[in-house]
Design a protein around this nucleic acid. Structure first.
Ligand code: SF4
Ligand code: SF4
Lengths: 136, 136
DNA sequence: TCTTAATACTACCTTTAAGTAGTATTTAAT
DNA sequence: ATTAAATACTACTTAAAGGTAGTATTAAGA
């Protein structure tokens, strides 16, 4: 019951970059600051570049920056990119597709928290995650 | 964001056995009915026996039954046994320990669904999961 | 132009979860 | 006693996630 490691790293990386107001960030420093293994960070970063969350500048003095305003990058988009989705019909037990006709007794209790989580992920942008008072 | 496979199997196995009112169930049939690979099912079952969810009777005419009333086996106990826990202080991002003093903006939105889920798992017993109308 | 510091690419290694195979042990029925 | 049908044990294999290594490419700056 946790987001996978890669997703967590991606959120932290994007969140940190969102917080640096357009200044290019390079992988070496990010790796140290965020305590993410350098090679793994660059691997994830490349995926973020391909999926157009990030723009990279190669060569000396290069680095990474957001590809669009922080307010337009939702946490849910990141989860989707890394396959860490909470589907609308997803069963809490993972058994099947939730179906209000033929359901287990967890079903009704599961609907509300599931919807709250989806809403939370869908409505929270990197901008909302910004701020030095937060420990990301 | 899903329970792991082993946990899901365990819930379904226990749930089915809870539904059979004390009649011994054997691994071969369970495997067919629940569509869980026989060898994997017996492996999980052995863990359920050791952790005292299940009593096994060996030898011919043997099988499995609940070790205690269905009403006393909570879904949360099963999650705990298989390490699939939602901890009270667990961060939705998996980054650290949630701390209401120094928090990200997801924190407050995360508290409610998290508590609902924990409550749901803690208060739902195998008895609550019983019933032929449910598709487990 | 050469060096250096950055990202990108390809391929591999490691760890963990999931699943399988074979044998040993137990016990009721014959 | 023997057989058959069940669980238990030990060890292995496979698949997926997480992580690493080495090299190629790019571009600013001396
Ligand atoms: S009804 Fe229950 S078991 Fe069935 S899909 Fe929904 S949560 Fe899962
Ligand atoms: S405050 Fe936010 S980032 Fe920090 S532990 Fe809580 S949910 Fe996670």
């Amino acid at each position: 019951m946790e987001l996978n490691n890669t997703t967590q790293y991606a959120i932290r990386m994007l969140s940190y970059i969102a917080n640096s107001h357009g200044k290019l960030q390079n992988a070496k420093e990010l790796s140290q600051i965020l305590a993410i293994p350098y090679k793994f960070l660059t691997k994830i970063m490349t995926e973020l570049v391909k999926s157009e969350f990030i723009i990279s500048i190669r060569g000396r003095e290069g680095g990474y920056k957001l590809a669009k305003p922080a307010s337009q990058i939702m946490v849910l988009d990141i989860l989707n990119q890394f396959g860490d989705i909470v589907k609308e019909n997803q069963c809490i037990l993972g058994i099947g597709t939730c179906d209000s006709e033929n359901k287990c007794s967890l079903h009704d209790q599961w609907v509300t928290p599931k919807e709250m989580m989806i809403k939370m992920f869908a409505e929270t942008s990197l901008e909302n995650l910004e701020g030095d008072e937060f420990k990301i």
